[in-house]
Write a protein that binds this DNA or RNA. Structure first.
Length: 270
DNA sequence: GCGACAG
DNA sequence: ATCTTGTCGC
């Protein structure tokens, strides 16, 4: 299925990607580096960012990359940028960053140019951090390249290092009762790779939170929890909503501009 | 051959 | 990720 993409990749690309991940992994800081991260109320935290990439349905390359910044603790959007991009790398489990991260780094750079005062103090990233095949997921990758604290927030368990979405795991999920309940994800190696977090009182599926860069797992989980009005943390949710909306307005909206570009022959065509 | 496969 | 409407529940 998805791994068919492996065959369409230049011979040496995969090993180059692995080398790059190994190099950059050495630069990851998996502990708190900012004063607000230690504070029980996150005093001093004012801006939380969220990033996401949404796709054009029929197209494997067309996508919209978005970066939003929310005020904290109000969680109101104070900055938004959506941009159509053309993806080049295919999606490969374990190499998500090579597909999406260049565009997210660009978005952060443009924010730095346009509104440096709105630079987020931390980014919530759709995907994993150190909970990854080689301990270097997209949240680590984006963190190292931007030097921003980053948190990985995945919606599904990436089954690595002995972690399995098996009956035992599902039982642990059932034991999560209220928002904030969580359990650690300990890899076969013994290391705690992340936390399964119930982010909403009425959500069945937990969030899988892991360290991206410049934040401890404890602070990452507490921050994620405090950013959740619904299951998905508001910064990521807003980035997702707005990027999909942007695609809809750009390619799906009614009007003469798009009528000739829609799928299939229109009325009157042979 | 079988299962796994963030987004 | 995306394909997809209504529907059941709080």
């Amino acid at each position: 299925m998805a791994q068919e993409a492996v065959g369409r990749l230049p011979r040496e690309t995969l090993s180059r990607w692995k080398r790059e991940q190994a190099m950059l992994k050495a630069l990851v800081v998996d502990r708190n580096t900012e004063a607000w991260q230690q504070d029980p109320a996150f005093a001093g935290l004012q801006r939380v960012g969220g990033v996401d990439v949404s796709f054009v349905k029929g197209d494997s390359a067309g996508a919209c990359a978005s970066l939003v910044v929310l005020s904290y603790p109000e969680l109101e959007v104070v900055y938004e940028e959506c941009r159509m991009v053309s993806l080049t790398a295919p999606y490969l489990s374990g190499f998500l960053a090579f597909r999406e991260v260049p565009f997210l780094v660009d978005a952060v750079r443009r924010l730095q140019e346009k509104q440096p005062s709105l630079m987020p103090q931390v980014l919530l990233v759709d995907g994993n951090g150190v909970l990854h095949h080689r301990g270097f997921g997209v949240a680590c990758h984006l963190g190292v390249l931007t030097d921003l604290p980053c948190v990985g927030v995945a919606k599904k368990l990436l089954q690595v290092d002995g972690l399995e979405n098996n009956a035992l795991h599902k039982d642990k999920i059932r034991l999560l009762r209220a928002r904030g309940d969580a359990f650690p994800l300990r890899g076969r190696s013994g290391a705690i790779l992340g936390v399964a977090l119930k982010s909403h009182d009425h959500s069945t599926k937990p969030l899988y939170v892991s360290v991206g860069h410049k934040i401890s797992l404890e602070a990452a989980v507490r921050l994620t929890r405090s950013c959740c009005r619904f299951r998905i943390p508001e910064p990521v949710r807003q980035a997702d909503i707005r990027s999909r909306d942007y695609i809809r307005r750009t390619l799906g909206g009614p009007g003469p501009l798009c009528s000739g570009l829609r799928a299939g022959p229109g009325p009157g065509a042979l």
